[in-house]
Design a protein around this nucleic acid. Structure first.
Length: 485
RNA sequence: GGCCCCAUCGUCUAGUGGUCAGGACGUUGGCCUUUCAAGCCGAUAACGCGGGUUCGAAUCCCGCUGGGGUCACCA
């Protein structure tokens, strides 16, 4: 049977790095096995869900190249893919559970619940900031065994019936995972406004959508037990679960490692990496390696990722976000990328620097020349900009060091030779250094550096041939003459 | 605090009873060189602790310690 997997984000903000990796692992698994990747929007949190967030998530996935077979824009064959659009379905299942005595209506108001907590706190002599959970507070509804149907607001709770046995599941990476079913409580299925809660809608949807494998972060292990209880009550076969290790980040305030969060870690936002000039594939490659491995391999093309990925190779230990390594991976893919693709991605970065360019041969020469000199597209654009403006900005210390009398003499010699160059291409331009070296006996550095400074204003640039070709004949002479003047 | 998950270099990881414990990032020494990069060669650094099982444990079991997660009318 072909696997059917899903990514089910809640649209309460931008696409998170952890979410992106969850999506990636599921997507890879589907692609690897010829299965189906489903995108489902869990928008039942009315407080925090926004249409903008839905769009942000779609945009993020698209930027990463993670496409879905079913979901927003492709609402078949098990619609809808937005949970708020299938409220009647959840109500139907809830009703069924109530009629079977597996769930009950709880008319306790939020005020009453608050009072219960307050009374408990008082009886334990707790202070204001104390955590009731640590003191052992456990909610027990007075309505659990009262089947009356009142015309009053109520939540629907699942009726846990502990047997003293252990409840659990076979996790693909953790193996048998279980706990005593007495530890489970009567969790809420439907809020008083009829909107379902995660543990409920998730189970209903995974069942309705024929999901075969659920892969999600380890923070969901504890909710999985409750979901298993639901599957049992409903008589449904649960999917195969896989819980991925978490992506951690260092909390700069405390110095501790903790689950990467939107609030404390700006890099948790997938799109800030786009802004920072990270290639989408580099981010994918890097993120895939947190919690997953394929022997000693580090660098993967998209095709290799699909070819090699398997859930059984997912690890168990949490991984810490390592920005230096992301940069290294990014640098690798810039270095090994196709010039036309890199150029296309660089255009907007140049635009934001006020440089309007098209993806032409010249730009491609430029990104190629700087591909070993830029770690990000931001650096790439910054490196390229000076070649697209008229005249060079001179670095005083470089001028002092290389454009002295001897240096200028070298530049004059170069200028003379340049005059004779018919085809303004790097292979034709580069040899002038050797020629001048042969004529003067000077070291190449003493020749190339003055030329470099005259043409770029600074002491760093690609090889002289590439540099001059990039500049163009006219601009080269303009800058040389300006430097010699 | 209850429960759950986890434990190899600073970080990401390979390892599945017998390896000099390997790779990558980082740091670092050198080579190359037309600057800066890149590239190449080398160095650096780990099996948390204590018990078992075994001829033999990073690998299996138990305990401890440590880290993380989770305990909502959030997901």
């Amino acid at each position: 049977m072909k696997p059917r997997v899903r990514f089910a984000p809640s649209p309460t903000g931008y696409l998170h790095i952890g979410g992106a990796r969850t999506a990636l692992f599921n997507w890879l698994y589907a692609r690897r096995h010829g299965g189906t990747f489903i995108l489902r929007i869990e928008d039942t949190d009315q407080e925090r869900s926004t249409p903008e967030s839905v769009q942000a998530i779609l945009t993020g996935l698209q930027w990463l190249g993670i496409d879905w077979d079913e979901g927003p824009g492709k609402e078949a064959p098990y619609p809808p893919y937005f949970q708020m659009k299938k409220l009647p379905r959840y109500a139907e299942i809830a009703e069924q559970l109530i009629s079977e005595g597996k769930a009950y209506r709880d008319y306790t108001t939020e005020e009453e619940t608050a009072k219960l907590r307050a009374d408990f706190a008082a009886s334990k002599g707790l202070k204001d900031g104390d955590d009731l959970r640590k003191a052992g507070f456990k909610y027990s509804s007075p309505w659990r065994d009262k089947p009356e149907k009142l015309d009053r607001p109520h939540v629907v709770r699942f009726k846990m019936k502990p047997t003293g046995a252990r409840i659990g599941f076979e996790d693909l990476v953790h193996g048998r995972t279980e706990k005593p079913d007495e530890d489970l409580d009567d969790f809420v299925l439907l809020r008083s406004d009829g909107i379902p809660l995660y543990n409920f809608s998730c189970v209903v949807d995974d069942h309705d959508m024929h999901i075969t494998h659920v892969g999600r972060g380890q923070e969901h292990i504890n909710s999985t037990y409750s979901q298993i209880a639901l599957y049992q009550a409903l008589g449904w076969t649960p999917p195969v679960f896989t819980h991925f290790p978490l992506i951690m980040a260092v909390n700069k305030e405390t110095g501790n490692e903790e689950k990467m969060s939107k609030r404390k870690h700006p890099e948790a936002d997938v799109m800030v990496h786009q802004k920072n000039g990270i290639l989408p594939h580099a981010l994918l490659n890097f993120v895939a390696r947190i919690g997953w491995s394929h022997g000693n391999d580090e660098l993967f093309t998209r095709e290799q990722l699909v070819e090699y990925f398997d859930l059984k190779d997912v690890g168990r230990t949490n991984g810490v976000w390592n920005p230096e390594k992301l940069i290294a991976v990014n640098q690798h893919w810039i270095k090994n990328g196709k010039p036309e693709e890199l150029a296309a991605m660089t255009v907007p970065f140049l635009a934001s620097l006020g440089v309007t360019v098209t993806n032409d041969a010249r730009l491609q020469l430029g990104v190629k020349a700087f591909s070993t000199r830029a770690k990000t597209l931001v650096e790439m654009a910054a490196n390229l900009k000076p070649y697209y403006v008229h005249g060079a900005t001179m670095d005083p210390s470089a001028v002092t060091k290389f454009l002295d009398a001897a240096g200028k003499d070298m530049v004059r010699r170069a200028r003379a030779k340049l005059e004779a160059i018919a085809e303004w291409k790097a292979p034709a331009l580069d040899p002038i250094i050797d020629q001048i070296a042969a004529e003067t006996g000077a070291k190449k550095g003493a020749i190339a550096q003055p030329i470099r400074v005259a043409c770029t204003g600074g002491a760093f640039s690609p090889g002289i041939g590439d540099t001059l070709e990039l500049l163009g004949r006219e601009e080269t002479f303009f800058r040389i003459d300006a430097a010699l003047a």
